[in-house]
Design a protein around this nucleic acid. Structure first.
Lengths: 331, 331
DNA sequence: TTGTAGGCGTTATCAA
DNA sequence: TTGATAACGCCTACAA
């Protein structure tokens, strides 16, 4: 059995209350007593039981991240941002996994069961009645990526990102721009739709008549081969490829393009999406659209803390991050 | 205030005990009562308070990862392995950060304060007296990477990895092999020493007289430039570079080599370390030593669970993972 | 099949 | 400056 505050109190010849006060460095307790208690605490390796504390105080000093398991660089970097922001503060980070579709149930369990003081829900498709309940109870829930008007959230402007990417490529004289996406794999998630809409809108606004949408089964290293083959198959191949499917797929394309003799950027310009570390490790620097994942993680935590504090405005605040084109060599 | 088991009991006209039993699906309670209680639980959005439960049960159903903040692909992939292993089980993962040097204090706080049932400590330099205490109290602590004989741990055979890498390069006819490392940055951590010793031993055993150790300030993208310049400066440059400093630095080298006209692998063969995703996204496939980080994460969790279960052998078990050479194009 | 009572370890309140 | 007492919400005997 672990050491309790009672045992410390007994050994020090004081009451548990006193020990508690000493540990919180209260000025109301005398020097001598304090020193004596602290020595015993040290000697006995006493640390307050966290559950007892939480139960009494009604808080957990923890923030939870809920997400389904799909592996994804954005998620890693986002989490990293949250971690950095949490670091040094009084909060602790907890990770909870939920099968795709079961995220709302998991959020409820955490918030209602006081497993954490706030939840950051990543890419969660949230039913309206669920959100209404959360909102009514003023539970601190931050939506990340798939936000909903009227609820606290953090998002990236995927539409603008796509639009700007196409505009950049067109500005470089490219007229036949293809886009790659994994629509089926991420059905329902706003970022897919938004990126596609941005592409379509920009093409229209810029008077580009060419359109080629390459559907990928996943955002992985198999993408390069699929894209190259699709492109070589066309009688009128694109002169630019916008990998809205991410830097990883763009890197995969660069690699496969070299194998099959497609020259980048001469034959075809390539743009990625995310500006993850991958974009900097390809031998030909990858021009890409930066999504500030780390900053978004910080913002999400910040918003969560404001919800915990009960700041009224925060309960319907959506923080949107704009895109930035990072020019390297591939386009 | 959140809903409690008492309120549910009152609404259902039963005792709290009954509600508790219903929630744990006990066969000792009648169908009718069960249904009635469950409906009210649902209606009221009742979820048991986690702190209360933990306090009573004396466990947390959580495993903690303690690490200092240094960003590192091995760590990410390791954590990913733990996450996968945790997924589906009854345990939850918690992340705790500790300034380099303060990890032991953090571990104590977590284990003695019952903030988690077990701790995985990454790259922690643990003082002997700290370990002795932990061992005596049979607290479930798993050392990752920097393991100590007699204590539960998970490690990669860095010595063998380095040795095999050099042997591979020598087998390819390379005689002047350089190694890159960030010794000062990771002073005291075993992996640096082991990798260096493996390099030295293999060179000696294979009769290679050439030796060149490139010290890097960090494992980042600035490494390429430093390495290329160092190499071009030599009157007798190496014909192989073993980036024991990781794939990221190797990728950085490939990129810089292209800029400065060094041909890989003709002028110089390049090997990385880790086999992270980076090794697959460089345009010229990176030959590297695979460190099975994800599997190591799984193993660490597995070991932690065995410690929690009190398996005697586990308390002095060190799981070692062997290296594997992954041949691609750069060497 | 259901209810009562006590305690897990802590802190807050109030009294001394 | 310190101590006694009562919760926090749950679960586990044991009793009915």
């Amino acid at each position: 059995m672990a050491v309790t505050i009672k045992q410390i109190a007994e050994l020090a010849g004081v009451a548990p209350t006193t020990v508690s006060l000493v540990l919180r460095d209260s000025p109301k307790v005398g020097r001598a007593t304090k020193d004596r208690v602290l020595r015993i605490v040290e000697d006995m390796d006493y640390y307050p039981n966290h559950s007892g504390k939480m139960l009494k105080q009604g808080r957990t000093d923890a923030v939870a991240i809920v997400s389904s398991l799909f592996q994804n660089i954005f998620k890693m970097e986002f989490v990293n941002g949250v971690e950095r922001a949490v670091h040094g503060g009084p909060f602790q980070l907890r990770h909870y996994y939920a099968e795709a579709g079961s995220e709302p149930a998991k959020c409820k369990e955490i918030l209602y069961g006081k497993m954490a003081d706030a939840v950051l829900a990543m890419s969660m498709l949230a039913p309206p009645d669920f959100l209404a309940k959360i909102k009514a109870s003023r539970k601190p829930l931050v939506l990340v990526e798939d936000v909903v008007e009227g609820f606290p959230g953090v998002r990236f402007d995927n539409y603008a990102a796509s639009y700007e990417a196409v505009r950049y490529l067109a500005g470089k004289g490219r007229r036949r721009i293809a886009i790659s996406l994994a629509m089926k794999a991420y059905m329902g998630h706003c970022f897919v739709d938004e990126r596609l809409r941005g592409y379509i809108a920009a093409s229209r606004d810029l008077g580009l008549e060419y359109s080629e949408i390459i559907e990928l089964p996943a955002y992985d290293l198999g993408a390069g081969r699929i894209m190259v083959e699709r492109i070589l198959d066309k009688s009128e191949p694109p002169d630019a490829l916008f990998c809205a499917s991410g830097d990883l797929t763009a890197a995969s394309f660069l690699k496969q393009a070299r194998v099959q003799g497609l020259r980048v950027p001469d034959d075809i310009a390539v743009m990625g999406f995310d500006d993850s570390i991958i974009a900097q490790t390809t031998t030909l620097g990858l021009t890409t659209v930066r999504q500030p994942s780390t900053e978004m993680g910080k913002a999400a935590l910040d918003l969560a803390l404001r919800l915990i504090d009960g700041e009224a405005e925060a309960f319907s605040m959506i923080v949107t991050f704009p895109p930035e084109i990072i020019v390297r060599e591939s386009a």
